[in-house]
C-alpha cells in the first residue's frame, strides 16, 4: 500500500497549473486535498506521471457569502466552510451536508472543489450542487467558462471538465423564504460513503401548497439523480402523508438499477431511497412551515 513513483509540481497560479496539464497531455493528475486521490495512489489504482498540487495557489482559497450566494474557491477546505459562522447561519443545508462528509479529520484536508471534481456518485457535495442549482467556474487554456451543476456530472467519477481545465470555484445559491430542506443518508458506519442519501428542498406558496420541490438522490446511480417525476407529483399540491408516500415511492421506482455490492443489494438501496425520500420530505416540510 505505497504510492507508485510520480513527479510532483507545485504551480503558484491557475495559469501555471493549466500549462502543466497541457504539457503532460493527460498524464498529469490534479491533487487538491488528496482524500480520494492519495488512497487511490496507495492502492495503485491511479498511476499518474505527475501530480499537480493546487494547494500553493492561494487565489483558490476563499469563501464569500453575499448576494444570495455562498461562493467558494475550489481549494477551500471543507472544514473551513463548515465552521464558517455565516455559512452555518445563512446556508444551513450546505452546512448540514458538509457535516456528513467522512470525518472532521478528512474535512480538514479535503477541499470543496476536489470532492466536486472527483464526482463520486455517493458523495454529498455533488448532490447538494445539483439540488441547489449550483454553478461551477472552470479555467482552461481558452479562458474561463461557467457550467451548471445539471450539466457537470456525466457519469461515475467523470465531469464536464476537459483534461486541461481546472475547477476554480463553485456558487451555491441560498434558499429563498418559505423554503424547507433536509439531507438524509444511511451508511454502514458513521463517516462511510452513503448506501443511499437524499437532498430535499421544498418551497411553499402563500396558499400552503408546494410551489417548488427538488429531490436529488445520491449513492444510487452513476451521478446524483434528480427525482423529476416525484418533484412533479409534489408541486402544486398541499403535502399530506399520502402525497409524500407516493412521491417517495415514485422516486424509488424511477431509479435505474442501483449498485449491488458487498455493502447492499440494489433492492435494498432502492427501498432505502424510498424511505429516505419520505423522511427527508417530511423534515423539509416541517422546516418550510417554520421558515
Amino acid at each position: 500500500m505505497k504510492p507508485p513513483i510520480f513527479d510532483y509540481a507545485t504551480p503558484a497560479s491557475v495559469a501555471e497549473a493549466i500549462a502543466l496539464l497541457a504539457r503532460y497531455e493527460g498524464e498529469a493528475k490534479l491533487l487538491s486535498g488528496g482524500q480520494s486521490l492519495v488512497p487511490l495512489l496507495n492502492m495503485r489504482l491511479a498511476r499518474p506521471a505527475v501530480l499537480v498540487d493546487l494547494a500553493r495557489i492561494a487565489a483558490l482559497d476563499w469563501v464569500r457569502v453575499a448576494d444570495g450566494v455562498v461562493a467558494i474557491g475550489a481549494m477551500t477546505r471543507q472544514r473551513t466552510v463548515e465552521l464558517a459562522p455565516e455559512v452555518q447561519e445563512r446556508h444551513p443545508l450546505l452546512h448540514a451536508g458538509l457535516q456528513l462528509i467522512a470525518h472532521p479529520q478528512n474535512r480538514n484536508q479535503g477541499t470543496i472543489g476536489g470532492s466536486l471534481a472527483h464526482a463520486d456518485p455517493a458523495a454529498e457535495l455533488p448532490a447538494l450542487a445539483v439540488a441547489l442549482d449550483a454553478s461551477f467556474e472552470a479555467a482552461g487554456p481558452e479562458g474561463t467558462r461557467t457550467v451548471a451543476a445539471a450539466d457537470f456530472f456525466l457519469t461515475y467519477l467523470t465531469t464536464a471538465l476537459a483534461a486541461t481545465e481546472i475547477l476554480t470555484s463553485v456558487r451555491f445559491p441560498m434558499l429563498p423564504a418559505r423554503t424547507g430542506w433536509a439531507i438524509q443518508e444511511v451508511a454502514r458506519r458513521h463517516g462511510d460513503f452513503a448506501l443511499a442519501g437524499v437532498v430535499a428542498v421544498v418551497g411553499l406558496a402563500l396558499s400552503g401548497a408546494i410551489s417548488r420541490a427538488r429531490v436529488v438522490l445520491y449513492g444510487v446511480g452513476a451521478t446524483p439523480v434528480r427525482a423529476a417525476a416525484a418533484e412533479r407529483l409534489l408541486e402544486g399540491h398541499v403535502a399530506d402523508a399520502a402525497l409524500l408516500a407516493s412521491a417517495s415511492a415514485q422516486a424509488a421506482a424511477d431509479l435505474e438499477e442501483p449498485l449491488t455490492d458487498v455493502h447492499a443489494s440494489a433492492d435494498y438501496r432502492r427501498d432505502l431511497a424510498r424511505v429516505l425520500v419520505g423522511r427527508a420530505l417530511a423534515e423539509a416540510m416541517t422546516r418550510a412551515h417554520a421558515a
Partner: peptide
C-alpha cells in the same frame, strides 16, 4: 487509506490523516 485514524497528526493545528497526505504536501 484514511479510514482508521491511527496516523492522525496535527497539520498547522488541524487533525489530518498522515497516511493519505504526502510528505511534500
Amino acid at each position: 487509506h484514511g479510514v482508521c485514524g491511527a496516523c492522525t497528526v496535527l497539520w498547522n493545528g488541524k487533525a489530518v490523516r498522515s497516511c493519505i497526505m504526502l510528505a511534500v504536501q
